[in-house]
Amino acid sequence: MDVLAAPALVSRLDALTAGPRPDLVLDLRPVSFIDCAGLGVLWFLRILRCTGLAGAFGIHPRRPADLIGTPVARSVSASAG
């Protein structure tokens, strides 16, 4: 995930979270590289903590068991890193 992939990721995440109560799981296991642009897109945990909203979201270090085996949307190019 680099500076070239970040705009597509931002666009897709915006579309996925446009609803009133979005439920989003990001599986980053296939990602082998993240540069500062990719981190900028994904650095939301710190923002949630700084704004006091971290407790309003379920944040898991790995994919929740009830989602294992469910289809994963692959809208961002696989070449994104």
Results as ranks from 00 to 15, higher is better:
residue 1 M to W: 04
residue 2 D to F: 06
residue 3 V to R: 04
residue 4 L to Y: 07
residue 5 A to S: 10
residue 6 A to W: 00
residue 6 A to I: 00
residue 7 P to M: 04
residue 7 P to N: 07
residue 7 P to K: 03
residue 8 A to P: 03
residue 9 L to K: 01
residue 9 L to S: 07
residue 11 S to K: 14
residue 12 R to M: 12
residue 12 R to P: 11
residue 13 L to G: 12
residue 13 L to D: 12
residue 14 D to F: 09
residue 14 D to T: 15
residue 16 L to H: 13
residue 16 L to A: 15
residue 16 L to P: 12
residue 21 R to T: 14
residue 22 P to D: 11
residue 23 D to M: 02
residue 25 V to S: 03
residue 25 V to F: 13
residue 25 V to Y: 13
residue 26 L to E: 06
residue 26 L to V: 13
residue 27 D to W: 06
residue 28 L to D: 06
residue 29 R to M: 04
residue 30 P to K: 00
residue 30 P to T: 03
residue 31 V to D: 03
residue 33 F to W: 09
residue 33 F to M: 08
residue 34 I to K: 02
residue 36 C to R: 04
residue 36 C to K: 02
residue 36 C to F: 02
residue 38 G to P: 12
residue 39 L to P: 11
residue 39 L to E: 10
residue 39 L to G: 11
residue 41 V to E: 03
residue 41 V to C: 03
residue 43 W to G: 12
residue 43 W to Q: 13
residue 44 F to G: 12
residue 45 L to C: 07
residue 47 I to Y: 14
residue 50 C to W: 08
residue 51 T to C: 03
residue 51 T to M: 01
residue 52 G to I: 00
residue 52 G to E: 01
residue 53 L to I: 01
residue 54 A to R: 13
residue 55 G to D: 09
residue 57 F to G: 04
residue 57 F to E: 02
residue 58 G to K: 02
residue 58 G to L: 03
residue 58 G to S: 11
residue 59 I to D: 10
residue 60 H to W: 15
residue 62 R to G: 14
residue 62 R to T: 15
residue 63 R to A: 09
residue 63 R to M: 15
residue 63 R to S: 09
residue 64 P to E: 03
residue 64 P to N: 03
residue 65 A to I: 08
residue 66 D to S: 11
residue 66 D to I: 05
residue 70 T to I: 01
residue 70 T to N: 11
residue 72 V to R: 04
residue 72 V to E: 13
residue 73 A to R: 06
residue 73 A to P: 04
residue 74 R to I: 10
residue 75 S to G: 14
residue 75 S to N: 05
residue 75 S to I: 04
residue 75 S to W: 06
residue 75 S to E: 14
residue 76 V to A: 08
residue 76 V to L: 08
residue 76 V to N: 10
residue 77 S to N: 06
residue 77 S to F: 10
residue 78 A to V: 13
residue 79 S to C: 07
residue 79 S to P: 01
residue 79 S to F: 14
residue 79 S to G: 12
residue 80 A to C: 14
residue 80 A to G: 14
residue 81 G to L: 14
residue 81 G to N: 11
residue 81 G to Y: 12
